[in-house]
Write a protein that binds this DNA or RNA. Sequence first.
RNA 1: GGGCGGCUAGCUCAGCGGUAGAGCGUCUCGUUUACACCGAGAGGGUCGGGGGUUCGAUUCCCUCGCCGCCCACCA
Length: 938
Amino acid sequence: MLDKTFDPKAVEPRLYAAWEASGAFKPSEDPNAEPFVIVIPPPNVTGSLHIGHALNNTLQDVLTRFHRMRGKAALWLPGTDHAGIATQMVVERQLAAAGNIGRREMGREAFVEKIWEWKAESGGTIVNQLRRLGASCDWSRERFTLDEGLSAAVRKVFVQLYKQNLLYRDKRLVNWDPQFQTAISDLEVEQKEVDGFYWHFAYPLADGVTYQHPVAFDEDGKATAHETRDYIVVATTRPETMLGDTGVAVHPTDERYKDLVGKFVTLPIVGRRIPIVADDYADPTKGSGAVKITPAHDFNDFGVGKRAGLAVINILTVEAKLNDSVPADYVGMDRFVARKAIVARAEEEGWLKEIEKTKHMVPHGDRSGVVIEPFLTDQWYVDAKTLAQPALKAVENGDTVFEPRHWEKTYFEWLRNIEPWCVSRQLWWGHRIPAWFGPSTDPNDKDQFTSKIFVGETEEDVLAEAAAYYGPKVQLGFTDGLVFVDRNEQGELTRVDLKRDEDVLDTWFSSALWPFSTLGWPEKTEDLARFYPTSTLVTGFDIIFFWVARMMMMGLHFMGEVPFKQVFINALVRDEKGAKMSKSKGNVMDPLVLIDELGCDAVRFTMTAMSGQARDIKLSKQRIEGYRNFGTKLWNASRFAQMNECVRVEGFDPATVQQPINKWIRGETVKTVAEVTRALEAPEFDAAATALYKFIWNVFCDWYLELAKPILNGDDAAAKAETRATAAWALDVSLKLLHPVMPFITEELWDKTAEFGPARDGLLIVEKWPQLPETWIDAEAEAEIGWLVETVGEIRSVRAEMNVPPSAKPPLTLIGASAETKARLARHRDLLLTLARLDSAREAEAAPAGAVPFVLGEATGALAIAEFIDLAAEKARLTKEIAGHAGEIDKTNKKLGNPDFLARAKEEVVAENRERLAEAEAAKAKLEAALARLAAVG
RNA sequence: GGGCGGCUAGCUCAGCGGUAGAGCGUCUCGUUUACACCGAGAGGGUCGGGGGUUCGAUUCCCUCGCCGCCCACCA
């Protein structure tokens, strides 16, 4: 006997272990099985499961289980990401908290060792939490972005891109994070609006130059007065950058400054003579129309400087302090301290013309939260523009489809405007860049010691390249220190020790390879041949750029095929008020706590049901409780079945059932199978959840089991046997359909019911997905049970409205019933009596006195409840019903009275309206007659 | 500045060209031998505003208004 409720806590670990041990998570080895493959968005190896993971991984598991049951070779490939900055940051913090020496004092090797220790300690957390979620990943194929195989893939990709000129080293401005002291990509920069100021500075003109500047204007904006100025005004939000100014730009057509182009200003504080140049970048409508140019610390200014041939002076250190390119007073000063100091000095010296309050966007590091500085450094870049073209095409022509489709616009927008991708990071945790520096033999190269680069997958490859470059007489080696060079007396090279690039690659560089690197690439493995391209990628929209687009680029470039055919973008989980969950707000819902409290299946069903498209998911605990209740409902239905000996029957064929209710539930089951299958194929997760919920609760429990009770308690042995077998069958089908979403409770019920009926072995997880013939839908049974359900509903409604106590069992009379209705009444009289709590049900010519009428198709029902009738209430009820019909009639008449409607609307629509009109008119007439009788009485 | 999404019952959301739906909440009734994590019933919406297309618009188009998000070089 089943317990009264399902106990998820006891069942979940046991079943998961059984599944895993059975090998059911591995893809079928049947060569004829069509593959279905998902690669997991690898979570941070040291992370833990949050609600977003719960959603994302539930959906992946639903798909995986569904396709596995459909007989496909289903592979859900799990793994974790080393998460460069994030992990390095965590470990640095831990070291600091423990009072340890910092990473720089510790040194690279020791620090990386610490991270590996941390990974060993916490690295199993998230994968075990995925198990608690029921994730049917093939753990035997689990990968980690820094494992040997994936690292080899990364090296190979780097070298190949380099050789194809799609990856190069360049000196340009990058987004510099002074906290982590590394370059970051554009995507890792967050623009935040902050309160700030425009400080207007007057830069004095050099060489005694003056000009006329307009100061008053007429209505048309024409200057009417001018003053003589010996300075030019520029505005800035970052005064400290003035120390690196090497020019002032004005627009070439700007009349005000026309004569100043080619003249010079003397930069205050610094005393540098810098030119006034003409450049389209200067916007005459903004500020004074003149703009200070700091090529080394502003992306726009860098461009202006390049065009105008201005000097590039870097004034910052890696920590964003002023370096020794600035006047001595400021050297070593923090950038924000310097800002204040410079403003103070400007005021003191009289060249601060104005302070204007403003709100403006300031770039911040998404991890560090500090203000990013544009900074001139040498970095590695991927030519994303070139790689983006096939990635664009593949989505344009539908090789890869986004679901929901509108995300494609986001994808296109970014790829069409893509910039070179800075892939080097000045971090220690990650894939070290396989590039080595040596001296250039070209005397024109500026930096003789590091300007020759050798790129190779192995040190052997690099030595071979170097040997080819330096010639056989040069002895080659490697060094951890500076590049070492020895020369003979003639100045010829005799020895070179190459130095490997210190930097590591952006984490997303390795993630971009995930769909093929995890399958064994660059080896030609069986998995790679069988499982690439993958089927569906399930991920959040926040990483379409970071990850999806880059996988597309790399997949197409290295595999020649898209990495996945479908991208399902899931929503973002928010709290019940729609706020983003965050620790600081204290509104975080921990999926593991929810699983503990309400069971994994309830959490999973919630995620599935709420995964409607293109929307935030506002998650409330109440909702999860509702779905926990749904599980309990299913459990109790199974308990009822068990109590009533509804056990599976060997060789039972639903096609042979005779009882109308059994024919009916058979058809409903067929429809549900079709709908759930369709929904999961799409996938429309919410539609699948809705179909399952409605079928199991509102159809099977609310009606089928209730309708079955009289038979199960009756004496018709044949009908009883048939109903038992049908109930067991429908329940079995339900368990299968629900299994992808609620794997634990369905598996448990499957296993428990295996104890009864004919022997069956195996777990539900490996069962085949049902596929039922449409011919099992019986229109007549459907109509008949529909009639029964409607009749019961009407009677219940009347009883409730008339306050008829449940104990009262009034007789029912049917007036004007058709032969078909009479037959139905005869067939289901017992059911009707039980479900509607009636004493009797018979046909008659006229309603008995004091009976309450209601419309039932062509017939009129009359419930003899004279003793409960409140005349006023009954009048009100009838009047309301009549008004309802009258409204309907009115509306429909209008339609049918419109010749255009008759002429142009589809025939079946017209027919439908005619029918509706007739029904409404008949119903209204009956009720009006009843009301008239009532009026006569009262 | 550019783009995307949303605005449907008190709340959360389906529906997306032919009679407005669900869950939760609310109200009424109910200890009928699966289930009170339950059952029965009821109330509740001019589908954000305004135009247009159409025989017909919550559904398609335009426009406006809010709300949210993404991108954009911080004079």
